[in-house]
Amino acid sequence: EESQDIKALQKELEQFAKLLKQKRITLGYTQADVGLTLGVLFGKVFSQTTICRFEALQLSFKNMCKLRPLLQKWVEEAD
């Protein structure tokens, strides 16, 4: 059922947002740094506010889903 899928996805997004924040802090990056690095990787800079709202799960579900693969890549590249 679709609502189950969405619930599962939301849970996954929550966990990912936590992971992103932990990783960012561990590596000593600011939210603005992450936004700028996305610009380098994908040619589209994201504001500190956007990263902040992603981490706080304050973006729309659709936006969270759109941003996630980009931030996933950041997490992979950041090591």
Rank of each mutant, 00 (worst) to 15 (best):
5 D>C: 13
44 K>G: 06
44 K>L: 00
31 Q>D: 10
38 L>A: 07
54 F>C: 04
68 R>L: 08
54 F>W: 01
9 L>T: 09
64 M>P: 03
12 E>R: 11
32 A>N: 09
24 R>S: 06
32 A>R: 13
23 K>E: 02
32 A>V: 01
58 Q>W: 09
28 G>E: 00
24 R>G: 00
32 A>L: 01
29 Y>N: 02
78 A>T: 12
54 F>K: 02
41 L>Q: 12
64 M>Y: 00
4 Q>I: 07
77 E>R: 10
67 L>C: 06
71 L>K: 05
43 G>V: 03
65 C>P: 13
6 I>Q: 13
76 E>L: 06
49 T>V: 07
70 L>M: 11
25 I>Y: 15
50 T>P: 02
57 L>E: 02
10 Q>Y: 12
68 R>M: 03
4 Q>T: 12
79 D>R: 09
34 V>T: 01
44 K>C: 06
1 E>S: 03
56 A>F: 04
75 V>E: 06
54 F>Y: 04
56 A>Q: 13
64 M>C: 01
3 S>D: 12
27 L>Y: 06
45 V>T: 12
29 Y>P: 05
12 E>S: 10
31 Q>L: 10
60 S>G: 08
77 E>L: 10
43 G>K: 04
7 K>A: 12
9 L>C: 10
48 Q>R: 13
53 R>T: 06
9 L>M: 14
37 T>F: 15
16 F>R: 05
73 K>V: 06
55 E>G: 02
36 L>F: 12
35 G>V: 01
30 T>M: 03
7 K>H: 09
16 F>D: 05
1 E>K: 11
74 W>F: 10
67 L>K: 00
59 L>E: 13
33 D>R: 11
75 V>A: 01
6 I>K: 15
36 L>V: 12
25 I>Q: 15
6 I>D: 13
76 E>N: 14
72 Q>D: 06
31 Q>P: 14
48 Q>E: 15
40 V>F: 02
33 D>T: 00
59 L>F: 07
9 L>A: 11
33 D>Q: 15
41 L>M: 13
78 A>H: 11
30 T>F: 03
49 T>N: 10
56 A>N: 13
27 L>H: 05
49 T>W: 08
51 I>W: 02
8 A>R: 13
38 L>R: 04
58 Q>P: 00
30 T>P: 00
39 G>S: 12
45 V>W: 09
76 E>G: 02
60 S>I: 07
27 L>T: 01
45 V>N: 12
54 F>G: 02
70 L>I: 06
67 L>G: 02
61 F>Q: 10
79 D>P: 15
41 L>R: 06
55 E>V: 00
4 Q>K: 12
51 I>N: 03
36 L>P: 03
14 E>N: 00
26 T>F: 15
10 Q>G: 08
33 D>N: 00
32 A>Q: 09
25 I>V: 15
51 I>E: 03
24 R>K: 02
9 L>F: 07
70 L>V: 05
40 V>G: 12
42 F>H: 02
49 T>K: 15
10 Q>C: 04
48 Q>G: 15
21 K>S: 09
17 A>G: 13
75 V>G: 02
60 S>A: 07
68 R>S: 03
26 T>H: 08
12 E>V: 11
69 P>L: 06
43 G>E: 00
79 D>W: 00
1 E>D: 11
11 K>I: 13
21 K>P: 06
12 E>L: 07
24 R>V: 11
49 T>E: 14
49 T>Y: 07
78 A>C: 06
17 A>T: 14
73 K>L: 07
30 T>R: 08
13 L>I: 13
71 L>F: 03
51 I>T: 06
57 L>R: 08
76 E>F: 09
40 V>Q: 15
55 E>T: 01
63 N>E: 14
46 F>D: 14
56 A>H: 08
41 L>E: 08
29 Y>W: 04
11 K>E: 11
12 E>N: 00
23 K>A: 03
22 Q>H: 12
23 K>T: 06
55 E>Y: 04
45 V>E: 14
35 G>H: 08
15 Q>M: 09
46 F>L: 14
65 C>R: 09
54 F>I: 09
27 L>M: 09
78 A>L: 01
31 Q>T: 08
39 G>C: 01
71 L>E: 06
36 L>K: 13
55 E>H: 04
9 L>V: 12
29 Y>R: 06
22 Q>K: 13
22 Q>M: 09
48 Q>A: 14
60 S>R: 03
44 K>T: 14
12 E>A: 06
11 K>T: 05
58 Q>E: 14
46 F>R: 05
8 A>C: 14
52 C>D: 14
31 Q>W: 13
53 R>D: 11
21 K>G: 02
7 K>R: 10
13 L>S: 01
43 G>R: 03
36 L>W: 15
71 L>I: 07
18 K>W: 09
1 E>W: 08
1 E>F: 14
18 K>V: 04
28 G>M: 04
78 A>G: 07
11 K>S: 12
20 L>D: 00
44 K>R: 13
27 L>P: 07
71 L>P: 11
46 F>A: 09
39 G>L: 00
79 D>V: 13
43 G>Q: 06
7 K>Q: 09
57 L>C: 12
56 A>K: 09
49 T>G: 08
7 K>P: 10
48 Q>V: 10
39 G>D: 00
57 L>I: 09
56 A>T: 08
30 T>D: 02
12 E>Y: 05
8 A>G: 09
43 G>C: 04
58 Q>A: 04
70 L>F: 14
53 R>H: 13
11 K>C: 06
77 E>V: 09
75 V>S: 10
10 Q>F: 13
5 D>W: 00
72 Q>F: 03
28 G>N: 06
20 L>S: 05
48 Q>L: 05
53 R>K: 12
31 Q>H: 10
9 L>W: 08
34 V>Y: 03
59 L>W: 05
61 F>L: 12
16 F>G: 04
72 Q>R: 07
19 L>V: 10
47 S>P: 12
36 L>M: 14
